[in-house]
């Protein structure tokens, strides 16, 4: 384990041994011979193959693994011979490429940094929750003031339709395919409606007031009920408006078609017929008297803020 002793490079460089002219390999060879070491001694000490030592001394870099390793080998060799490796590497242009920029001197350590709760004033952490709450409030306000009338109308339409409409199942026709549509008369229009409600069909529908407003999706032969025979079995209703003051009215039929949408003055009367269920919006409702198929309709329960909204599905009993 002993033998030629390794020393730190540069501890005692052999004086005058290194010339500027010769390459690293030549210098190493000269130094080795001066130290009376054979190639095998060096190879044994450096744990290299003899040919590798020869290649180092001949500056035959192609026979060696690569610049990183060559630099390491030359350093080890130089240390064995107790000479400064950096001078040798410079002689062979083997100095490592400038590694990186020198470490910048940064500002000295800044002082107190709270450990538990991270930086910033205390109110900063409330900023996000408060902002979220404000956004929420704004959203709710927007909904209340702009969206609610429209959606409230829809909700009310469904409820009033459900209130006024009789039970959808009828004893005479309970067809399995049409039953689903029949349970929701307010929401589902008939599949094959007539293009417009014929005035002749209206009396027929009135003649059979017991016929429920079942949306006739079935295409059965019109032989069973008179209502079905009358005209595509769609129930229709007649509305009579009488105005004691200025008002406006909007009436839509089951398909959503506008039957009447206009302003009306005091003393006006209007009569119209439409496919059930009919959706009504009546402004200034207190001055309007409405008859549905000849029966008066009380608008007060449907009135809110002077506007009555209601759905008429069947003649009042």
């Amino acid at each position: 384990m002993t033998g030629p002793v390794f020393e730190q490079p540069g501890v005692q460089p052999a004086p005058g041994a290194i010339d500027d002219a010769p390459s690293a390999g030549a210098q190493l060879r000269a130094l080795r011979e001066a130290a009376q070491l054979t190639l095998d001694d060096v190879a044994h000490q450096l744990k290299l193959a003899r040919r590798q030592v020869v290649a180092i001394e001949n500056d035959d870099l192609d026979a060696l693994p690569g610049p990183t390793f060559v630099r390491g080998f030359i350093r080890n060799y130089a240390r064995l011979l107790r000479v400064d490796a950096e001078a040798l590497l410079q002689a062979s242009n083997l100095v490592a490429p400038a590694a990186t920029a020198p470490i910048q001197q940064l500002a000295p350590t800044m002082g107190e940094l709270p450990l538990a709760n991270g930086g910033g004033p205390a109110w900063v952490r409330w900023l996000i929750p408060v902002a979220l709450i404000l956004v929420l409030i704004a959203g709710v306000a927007y909904y209340e003031f702009t969206v609610v009338p429209a959606s409230g109308k829809k909700a009310r339409k469904e409820t009033s339709g459900a209130v006024i409409a009789p039970p959808a199942t009828s004893p005479e026709d309970a067809p399995p395919p049409g039953s689903a549509a029949a349970t929701e008369p307010a929401s589902l229009p008939p599949v094959e409606p007539p293009p417009s409600v014929a005035p002749q069909a209206a009396p027929a529908a009135q003649a059979a007031p017991a016929t429920p407003p079942v949306t006739a999706t079935q295409a059965n032969p019109p032989s069973t009920a008179p209502a079905a025979a009358a005209g595509q079995s769609v129930a229709s209703g007649r509305l009579d408006f009488e105005f004691a003051g200025p008002s406006w009215v909007e009436v839509r039929d089951a398909r959503g078609e506008v039957l009447l949408q206009r302003e009306l003055a005091a003393g006006d009367r209007r009569t119209l017929t439409g496919m059930l269920p009919l959706t009504l919006r009546i402004g200034n409702a207190s001055v309007v008297r409405l008859q549905f198929d000849g029966n008066p309709v009380d608008l007060v329960p449907h009135t809110r803020a002077e506007i009555a909204r209601l759905t008429l599905a069947a003649p009042r009993p």
Binding site: F6, L46, K47, L48, T68, G72, F73, R75, N76, A99
Partner: peptide, 21 residues
């Protein structure tokens, strides 16, 4: 650590080099 490469060289019989920096 001084001569750590030497120790590993002797123990393994393989060349050992220390990387730059």
């Amino acid at each position: 650590l001084r001569d750590l490469d030497r120790l590993l060289m002797e123990e393994t019989g393989l060349p050992v080099i220390v990387a730059e920096d």
